[in-house]
């Protein structure tokens, strides 16, 4: 999977207005280089949910891959932003709406086109275990539910990988591995044992876990911020994703 470090990852203190989706929306139909780059980065990050969606809609794997690839080529080449205006608030909603539009109206025509020859292509890793596994394990849900579920997993995966990279850069990768479970709680786990494993005192292990949890929350909010138009939407997005798994 491709991971792009956003501006906010390098400097999270920057204004919300610089997040990727807000940059795309601000450019509107007159996309410039920065908004095109922001859109491409979002597409690179969040294509697995669409692929999961279309895998449920069509029977052939290769057909699903072709559709996904073709959609993104189309998205990056043509103005889909205006078409999805009512859903522009959140990239998650925009993406699935635009994809449905593509499947309903343009796929047949798109199939007839010979791709390549200057068309911008995204390099999508369809063989990724994350993508394949996420689809195969969900077999009783609708395509829309699969999309929402895979979206959430993709986002959480990005969050945890960012957190892990930050710790590894600080030379604390072992602490991440041993203490990451404390981000969600401590059932069945003992701080004393974890502290002994990494050679620190129990208070130090507790503090590191507490800091990891806080940093996790910060990264989660930052990643969501990249996909919504307003900071007011962040909590709603978390609630929405939680409801998917709570049900």
């Amino acid at each position: 999977m491709i991971h792009n470090e956003s501006d906010s990852e390098r400097n999270p203190a920057r204004d919300f207005a610089t997040t990727q989706w807000s940059v795309v929306l601000a450019a509107g139909n007159r996309q410039d280089a920065s908004s095109s780059r922001a859109l491409e980065q979002l597409c690179r990050a969040y294509w697995p949910p669409l692929y999961a969606y279309v895998r449920r809609r069509v029977t052939g794997i290769h057909e699903a891959q072709d559709l996904t690839q073709a959609f993104f080529e189309r998205l990056l080449e043509k103005d889909y932003l205006a078409d999805a205006a009512p859903e522009r608030g959140r990239f998650r909603a925009f993406l699935i709406t635009a994809f449905k539009h593509f499947l309903a109206n343009e796929w047949d025509r798109q199939k007839a086109l010979k791709r390549g020859g200057g068309v911008r292509r995204l390099s999508l890793d369809f063989d990724s275990e994350k993508v394949a596994g996420g689809i195969e394990t969900v077999d009783s849900t609708t395509p829309d539910q699969i999309y929402e579920r895979q979206w959430t997993l993709t986002l959480l995966d990005r969050v945890m990988q960012r957190l892990q990279r930050e710790l590894e850069r600080a030379g604390r990768g072992a602490e991440f591995s041993r203490l990451k479970h404390f981000i969600i709680g401590q059932s069945g786990e003992s701080y004393a044992r974890a502290a002994a494993d990494i050679g620190v005192s129990e208070p130090a292990a507790r503090m590191t876990a507490s800091r990891m949890r806080q940093r996790y929350r910060g990264i989660l909010r930052d990643e969501i911020a990249q996909t919504v138009a307003s900071p007011d939407d962040i909590d709603d997005e978390i609630q929405h994703m939680f409801s998917i798994f709570a049900n």
Binding site: E129, D157, M160, Q164, K180, H181, I184, R217, I238, Q239
Partner: peptide, 17 residues
Amino acid sequence: DAPAELCPKCLLQAGLG
């Protein structure tokens, strides 16, 4: 293959924390 081998539901709960 859950994110960092952690429960997504609990991760989101922690995010709502």
